[in-house]
Write a protein that binds this DNA or RNA. Structure first.
Length: 786
DNA sequence: TACTATGAAC
């Protein structure tokens, strides 16, 4: 109060200055101007100032409304219901700036002081400032103890998103009735502050006020959100005791609550007990079934619903669709789609989005796209469904193009869009694109979004620049376990096992607890670097963190041991596994047998693989290579027959290189490029120089077919070599060449590229199917460990 | 004076 008095004194002494300042705020100056002072001391205005200051903390803000001069409606009369908000506000402003506000108010008619008038003002308010002013008027009119009006005020405050103001209003009211209690409970519910809902509910009961049929829906919703089973039981008991066993709103709340808690049986009992079922009751039980993975039950319920008076709407369908999307059930989704058409709901935008999401997730990108194209104005979520659908199904370029489209059309991407696009960029593998995307993120508001940054780290690692990945990592201030793990993975991919371990140690220092994924990254980093001892130790300390190893972890260890030549240990390790060994485990053993030419064990592993994963060509090729390296030609032929029987043919190898932002693909012996002649000249030149320095091709790999490419007499025309030659003639000396290959690099090319990097003094970065190879000055970052 | 259900991206 002291502040207010000072405030008023202050302004009455500076009365002369006032006029100029008023001009100022009227002309649109946004800095809060001082309040005009009342001409008469101790006027009504002082009270108003007080209220505004108290409830808003920014009293001057209240005076920033304009167009004051146009109000000349003193003699005009409105009934309360027809007063438009703008006029009301003009009126209030006029009232406030007038020298005799109270009198003018009276002049305007009696209706302007009634509670219905204020109720209409409150209902029309769209901003906290309006409410502040109305509240001031209420206080001035002596209506501050009117429970109805204060309830309205509380509701109004929560509608404009000001829960703190609502709470202040509530706290100042001495004896809140059930309406006011409901209003404050509702306010918390609307602000998703469910803990407070329960707290207020408790206080309400403590104050001896009985909850009514409007109280329980909010309380039940809060129980649903908090997933507090103990509380649920208590509240259910109270519902029972207060006699709301047949109130459909309350009972609907209970159905939803039990369904969300996973107690679908209880939900069903409550639902069956309802004799008056509304759309909401049906939707609650249907989505309950859908969320609990009982899609068939949900659909049956939906069909039942269609035979009732409750007109089914699309909401229930959305939750059933979601259930199908979650389990990739395209067939059921399709039949539901038919249902949607039969019901004439196929133009409902939200259903279209759900359908598109289903089709996109199940790989039917074209169908999803047709929905997308059908929509007049697809929203962000629709764009996101398309972008991530494309990215997930190997159409990464399409995803990026869609993102560009989106920007061109001025549709604001959200963090999910950005993240999905970054993931797509990672798949494309172009560093230039990666940098473009990074730039975009830096300029957007998602610069410090941890999910986006995690995706960026992964993207840079996959696009060949572990340094850039590290830069993003260093610039992210809050690091969670996923971000740390992404960085560890990145180092692993580039064969920098020690860096990965350093990061892991730093992570522990930062008191971030590793998870299963962290260890997958660490173990694969050890694999790619040949750190057998370290990998083994890391595997063994997983249990210290309470992490149960999965197949991925076991296969890493098998790989680690097997590659280092400890085949028997690897085999014994598999036998001791507490879970059934999967494809990755036997695959690791087979490839280790391949390296060390252990035919017997390799055959054993291959047979396991053939029964677990019969249509994966890789296993057959591996076995065939194993036989070939042991010169068991009959068996090689036998494997070939097996492959033919299964109708499997080998993947064609190709390499990509990006020159000036354009991706160029080359197949083996590819002469289709316009500059093919120059390319092959360059290849021959390279070949000559290799011979000069004494390079001897490993002819073995022709037999081995290690990289799955067709058997060729001339190893120098493997696709990565052509890409390198093209890169050399198309870029300035010293430029780093970045190549992506769909298969593993063959040992011959690997050795040749090492030398080439030295001969042409270039860094050559090759991303093969497994990892990155950085060739520089005659060496490869993988240390021949791949 | 007012109430409950629901979903799409990751």
């Amino acid at each position: 109060m002291l502040t207010v008095l000072m405030f008023c004194t202050h302004y009455s002494t500076k009365n002369k200055k006032r006029k100029g300042e008023r001009e100022n705020w009227r002309s649109g100056d946004r800095t809060p101007s001082p309040l005009p002072s009342p001409r008469r001391r101790l006027s009504v205005m002082a009270k108003i100032c007080y209220q505004i200051l108290k409830y808003n903390g920014q009293g001057a803000m209240a005076w920033k409304l304009n167009n004051l001069s146009s109000l000349t409606t003193n003699n005009q009369k409105f009934t309360t219901s027809e007063i438009p908000t703008c006029l009301v506000l003009k009126f209030i402003k006029h009232l406030y700036s007038s020298s005799t506000p109270h009198l003018e108010c009276v002049n305007l008619g009696h209706g302007f002081n009634s509670d219905t008038f204020y109720a209409s003002l409150i209902d029309n308010s769209t901003h906290e400032i309006h409410l502040n002013q109305i509240h001031s008027r209420i206080v001035v009119s002596g209506l501050q103890h009117n429970g109805f009006l204060i309830t309205k005020m509380v509701n109004g405050s929560s509608n404009v998103g000001h829960i703190g103001y609502a709470r202040k209003l509530f706290d100042e009211f001495r004896f809140p009735d059930v309406f006011l209690w409901n209003a404050i409970i509702r306010s918390y519910s609307r602000s998703d502050m469910f803990g407070d809902v329960i707290e207020m509910y408790r206080s309400m009961r403590w104050a001896g006020v009985n909850p009514d049929c409007f109280t329980f829906p909010y309380v039940l919703k809060a129980c649903t959100e908090l997933l507090d089973f103990r509380l649920t039981r208590i509240v259910h008991g109270q519902v029972f005791r207060h006699g709301f066993r047949s109130d459909v709103f309350v009972q609907n709340g209970l159905v939803a609550l039990y369904a969300k808690c996973g107690l679908i049986g209880n939900a069903r009992v409550v639902f069956n007990g309802l004799y008056d079922r509304t759309v909401v009751s049906w939707t609650s039980i249907i989505s309950g079934f859908a969320q609990n993975g009982e899609a068939i039950e949900a659909l049956q319920m939906f069909n039942q619903m269609r035979n009732t008076d409750a007109k089914p709407d699309w909401i229930a369908l959305v939750s059933i669709l979601k259930a199908y999307t979650d389990v990739d059930d395209l067939e059921q989704g399709r039949s539901l789609h038919g249902c949607v058409i039969k019901m004439g709901l196929e133009h409902e935008p939200d259903l279209l989005i759900s359908l598109a999401a289903l089709y996109a997730k199940c790989g039917q990108v074209t169908v999803a796209r047709s929905f997308f194209d059908q929509m007049e104005a697809p929203n962000v979520i629709m764009w996101n469904a398309m972008i991530s659908g494309y990215a997930k199904n190997g159409h990464a370029e399409e995803a990026v193009n869609l993102f560009r489209d989106m920007i061109l059309r001025n549709i604001r991407p959200d963090s999910v869009t950005v993240r999905s696009t970054v993931i797509a960029c990672a798949q494309v593998g172009s560093l230039e694109l990666a940098q473009w995307m990074d730039d975009y993120v830096r300029k957007s508001k998602y610069e410090s979004d941890i999910y986006v940054n995690t995706a960026l780290i992964d993207m840079y690692a996959k696009c060949g620049s572990v340094e850039s990945a590290r830069r993003v990592f260093d610039h992210t201030s809050h690091k969670d376990v996923v971000l740390w793990s992404a960085m560890i993975m990145g180092y692993g991919l580039h064969g920098q096992g020690w860096e990965a371990i350093n990061i892991y140690n730093a992570m522990k220092q930062a008191r971030v607890c590793p998870n299963d994924v962290t260890f997958i990254g660490l173990l694969s980093a050890c694999n790619h670097t040949g750190l057998v001892k370290e990998g083994w130790e890391l595997f063994n300390c997983m249990k210290d963190f309470g992490i149960e190893p999965r197949n991925e972890h076991y296969s890493s260890v098998v790989d680690l041991l097997g590659r280092a030549g400890y085949l028997d240990r690897a085999y014994a390790f598999i036998l001791k596994m507490p879970v059934e060994p999967g494809v990755s485990v036997w695959g690791a053993l087979l490839s280790a047998c391949n390296i060390h030419r252990h035919v017997k064990m390799g055959e054993y592993a291959a047979n396991k693989l053939f029964s677990l994963d019969p249509y994966n060509i890789g296993h057959y090729v591996q076995l065939s290579n194993l036989y070939a390296s042991s010169r068991l030609w009959n068996r090689v032929a036998h494997v070939r027959v097996l492959m033919k029987e299964k109708g499997l043919s080998k993947d064609l190898g190709y390499s990509l290189i990006e020159i000036n932002g354009k991706l160029q693909a080359f197949h083996i012996g590819d002469k289709t490029h316009p500059r093919a002649e120059e390319i092959f000249d360059e290849l021959q030149r390279l070949e000559r120089r290799l011979k000069e320095v004494g390079f001897i091709p490993h002819t073995d790999s022709v037999l081995h077919d290690l990289n799955y490419e067709e058997k060729e007499e001339n190893l120098s025309i493997h696709s990565e070599r052509i890409a390198i030659a093209y890169g050399l003639i198309s870029t300035a000396p010293g430029t780093t060449l970045r190549i992506t290959k769909n298969l593993r690099a063959c040992i011959n090319c690997h050795s040749a590229i090492k030398l080439i990097s030295k001969l042409v003094a270039r860094e050559i970065i090759v991303r093969d199917a497994n990892r990155f190879h950085h060739f520089r000055d005659g060496c490869c970052s993988c240390g021949d460990y791949w």
